[in-house]
Simulated scan of single mutants.
Amino acid sequence: MKSKLSDLRGYLMTGVSYMIPIIVIGGVLIALSIALSGVKAGTGANVTNPILVKMMNIGVKAFGLMVPVLAGYIAFGIADRPGLAPGLVGGALASEIGAGFLGGIVAGFVAGYTAKWIKSWKVPSQIRAIMPIFVIPLLSALVVGTVMYIVGAPISNLMKAMTAGLKGMGSANSVLLAVIMGSMIAFDMGGPINKVAFMFGSSMIAEGVATVMGPVAVAICIPPIAMGVATLLKPKKYTMEEKEAGKGALAMGLIGITEGAIPFAAADPVKVIPSLVAGSAVGSAIAAIGKVADHAPHGGPIVLPVVDNKLMFILAIVVGVAVSATLVNILKKDVVQKDKNEDNNIEELDIEF
């Protein structure tokens, strides 16, 4: 059982390691374009400079590859090269139906294990040559595509139900509403559940109720900042790749890009996601108690100029980050860092033999 869990984590880490550069490209370029342009009340990020628009577009396109790359390389880790193409297809479909990175993880495992199973088939020698480039990718893509389309409708219905539920709560339950929305923002970090809370907060601005977006703006930045802070506080609990991703996550959090925390959540969802949800829920509750209002459909410290009750906004972020970073570092164990000299010695031995 322990060996199987270790294998699953290894496959996840394969996907995450290839996904991290994509998130860094997308997150940093989007963050820079917004940071150099600023935000405006009622409109959010206001990128108009032609060069910055192109920079933002490059970042958006990179972000569009995030889920397909995650799914593709999870499948690659499981089934080797025949798993890559169906994994990419499954990840693209997960993005299309709004299933986010969690849907990408499902797509990667479905594609990978399907491809691995088809690889085990005993087939005539005449067909064996075309199995890796034709039969395995094609059949695997059909299977993962079918699974993604089956889960698409329930996800859509769930989103509609959650939106209706949030609207029904009204302003009387402002703290409870903030806790729920903060939790939703952190749960899938840019995925469908996150989007429901974000769109609801944004729609309330148009109706003149900016105090709903205030807690959302706090929750948006807590996951990436918390993970960046966590890697600085307890570096032994993170791989070299994760420590580098932590630096990028800090920058993304300051600009309100929740996706900066996704590499950590994808690599260790059981420990990371609950920690981030807890911190975001606490931060959002503090923002609601402090009647924080955000007049721009965006989040993070970058919206401070258009926020009411700025001190409470900052306090909510600081407390939320502290809660998440502390929890995740309590839950995570130290990782064994590879010694580069050890790798070099292994390579030399391989050459000699």
Rank of each mutant, 00 (worst) to 15 (best):
G42R: 10
V143C: 15
K340P: 04
A107Y: 03
V24W: 11
I346K: 14
G42W: 05
W121F: 15
Y11G: 02
A75Y: 02
T239E: 13
A226N: 08
I273K: 03
I262A: 02
I273Y: 00
I351Y: 14
A153H: 11
G256A: 09
A266T: 08
I222A: 08
A197F: 01
S6H: 12
L142D: 09
L233W: 04
K333N: 05
E96W: 01
A186K: 06
P132D: 09
A210N: 09
A161E: 12
S3A: 15
M19A: 13
L139S: 06
Y11S: 10
F200G: 02
Y73R: 03
V143A: 07
P124D: 15
F63K: 02
P301R: 05
S140V: 00
G15M: 08
I78K: 08
S95M: 14
A35F: 07
A226L: 07
M148I: 11
T239S: 15
V306P: 05
V336F: 01
F198W: 14
A293N: 05
A111W: 06
L102E: 04
Q337K: 03
G170M: 06
L177F: 03
E342Q: 08
A164T: 14
T48R: 06
A206K: 15
D334I: 10
F313M: 00
N329F: 08
L158P: 01
P82D: 12
I51R: 06
G64D: 06
M213P: 02
L36E: 05
I222Y: 04
I205F: 07
F198K: 07
M1E: 10
D268G: 01
N341W: 10
L32M: 08
G145I: 12
P124L: 06
F353A: 15
Y11D: 13
V47T: 08
Y238Q: 03
Y73Q: 11
A141C: 00
T258E: 08
L70K: 04
V335D: 11
T258Y: 01
M66G: 01
V144E: 11
L349D: 12
L315Q: 03
G168Q: 10
M252P: 05
A45L: 05
E347N: 14
G104D: 02
S17R: 15
A71D: 08
I34G: 00
A153R: 08
A41T: 09
V216M: 07
A217H: 01
V69L: 06
F200S: 07
V123Y: 06
V47F: 10
D339R: 02
K54N: 14
K195W: 08
I225Y: 01
G152M: 06
I317Q: 04
V335F: 00
G90C: 14
